[in-house]
């Protein structure tokens, strides 16, 4: 029940999330689709060196108080044995 409520974001929260993304793209001058292309290329480069799940690589532009940052994250496989 509570989970159900929590999963339903208010339209205000949705608007905030969309704005953060749109403004990050606008401020950096990169279209959202371009960013996805870049993500695929970066993932391909990483996978040449480390075996990774290409789909799990994330590229994000974050913009807080007008400073903009590009962040790439990728889970690395655990080296068991």
């Amino acid at each position: 029940m509570w989970n159900f409520l929590r999963n339903r974001q208010s339209s205000r929260e949705v608007a905030k999330g969309r704005l953060h993304l749109v403004l990050a793209h606008d401020r950096a001058g990169i279209e959202g689709g371009k960013l996805q292309e870049m993500r695929r290329e970066i993932a391909a480069v990483i996978s040449k060196y480390v075996p990774i799940d290409i789909e799990a690589v994330e590229v994000q532009i974050e913009s807080k108080s007008r400073a903009t940052e590009l962040r790439v994250s990728s889970p690395l496989p655990a080296r068991n044995g």
Binding site: S10, S11, R12, E13, A15, K16, L19, H20, L23, S65, R66
Partner: peptide, 18 residues
């Protein structure tokens, strides 16, 4: 609408535009 969660609040706008 802000109270219902269907409009950004004044504080949200300030935070986003800094």
């Amino acid at each position: 609408l802000v109270k219902k969660g269907d409009m950004l609040s004044q504080a949200d706008v300030i935070e986003i535009l800094a």
